[in-house]
Design a protein around this nucleic acid. Sequence first.
DNA 1: CACTGGAGCCAC
DNA 2: AAACGTGGCTCCAGTG
Length: 448
Amino acid sequence: MEQATTQQAYSLFHQGTLALADVEANGMRVDVDRLDRTANKVTARITKLEGKLKNDEVYQTWRKRFGGKTQLGSRQQLGQVLYGEMGFKSDNKTKTGRVQVNESALEKVDHPFVKRYLEVEKLKKLKGTYLNGVKREVVDGLLHPSFNLHLVKTHRSSSDSPNFQNIPIRDKLIGKLIRSCFVAREGHQLVEVDYSALEFKIAACWWKDDAMVAYASDPTLDIHRDMAAECYCLPVDEVPKDVRFFAKNQFVFPELYGSYYVTCARNLWSVIESGGLKTKEGTPLDEHLLEQGIEQKDFEEHIEGVEEAFNDRFPTWSDRKEKWWNRYQRKGSFPLMTGFIISGVYSRNNLMNYPIQGPAFHCLLWSLIQMNRWLKQKRMRTKIVGQIHDSIVADVHEDELDDYLLLAKQVMTESIRKAWDWIITPLAIEAEVSPPGGTWFDKREVLL
DNA sequence: CACTGGAGCCAC
DNA sequence: AAACGTGGCTCCAGTG
C-alpha cells in the first residue's frame, strides 16, 4: 500500500496494527473435542450421501462419459452429464463462456440426484473450508486468525489463516455446526457488538444528502424496509424480514454502488422463488404482484420506476455522484473522509464504493483501538478476539459484562463522533451475548 | 511436482 | 457508456 496519506490516516493504521496484533495474540477459544466430533459426523454423512449418489443411474451415465477421470467434485463434468447427455437445458454462461453449474443453475434441474448433490457440496464446503481450516490452525485450544490492514484496495481489513470474517451464519444448520465449536474462556461469555446499518450511515455522511441523512438519523425510518415495500408493492408496515433483507442486497446497495434497474429487477425477481418470499399473509410474492397488476414481463419496467423514485428521493446524491466521478477523471486521485488518499486507475463503480466501504470500517477500527486500550489500562480480564468489518467479537468475563457493554456504547456511538466531525449522523450499536458456558452460535441479542 | 486461473461459495 | 463493491479458501483443469 504505497499511497500518499495524511498523518491521521497513518496514525489510525499504526495504532490499528498494534491493536489487531493484540487481538491476534488473544485468540478465540475453540472446543477442539466438539470440532473433532462434528468433523467425524459430517464426514460420515458425506460418505453416506456420496454412496447413494454412486448408486444413482445418473452416476452410471457419468462413469460412461468420463471413465477413470470421473470426479464427483467436478462441476464441469456434472454440467456435461446433465446438459450434454441427459438433455436438461442450461441458460446461463460464466464470464468465459462456459456453462454455469452453480447452485442457482442446479436448483432448476428437477432430479433427486442433483438435489442430493447440492446437499453433499454444502457439507463438503463446511468440512473442507471451515472444520478443517479451524482444526489446522488451532493451537492449545486457541485460534489466532490474522487480521490484515495492508491488503485491501478500499482500506478495509481482511483476515486469513483461517479467514475469521466469513464463518457461515445464514444457513442455520451449517452455521450451528461450525459456530458451536467456538466458545468463551472459563467464566467468560462471547459478546459480539456491531454497528447498525453502518454503510448506509456512512453513505449519508459522504454524500451529505439531506434526505439520506434524515433516513440514517431517524431510527423509525428504514430505507431497506421502504424500498422493499416499493419493489414488491407491499404496505411499509407489512414487509417481512427476509423481504427487507433481499431489497437491501438486491436493490439499495446495488443502486448506491452503481448497479441499475435491469440487473436489480432480474435479481429481485429470481429471489422470489429461491428465497421462497411470501407476504405476511403467506401469498407468494409473484402471485401478490400479479394481484397488483404486475406480471413477470412488467417487473423490469416497474423497478425502473422504483429506481427513478429512488433517485428523486435522494436528489443531492444523484447530482453529486456524477460530479464526484468527473472530479476523479480530472485529478486521477481522491481522498477518503478518514484521510487516506487513493490514486490510480479506478472504475466509476469503484468511485461510488470506496469512499463508503473504507471509512465505514475505519469507524470500527477506531473503536476497537480505544476499547482495546481501555481494557488493557484497566487490567480487565475481557479480551477482544476478533473483528468482522462492522463488528467486534470479545471474550468477556462474566463480572465485566456490564462494563464492557457500557464501554462499547460509549466509544462506538459517542467518543467517535467527538473525534471525527465528518460523522453527521447518529451511530447505533447492537449487542449479542452467549450464555455462560454457551457457544458463538448461542449468542442472543441483549438490550443496551 | 509446482504453479496458475477459473468457478464456486462463504462473509460483510 | 455501462451496469453493486471488498475479501479468502477449495477444488478442478491445465501448463511446464
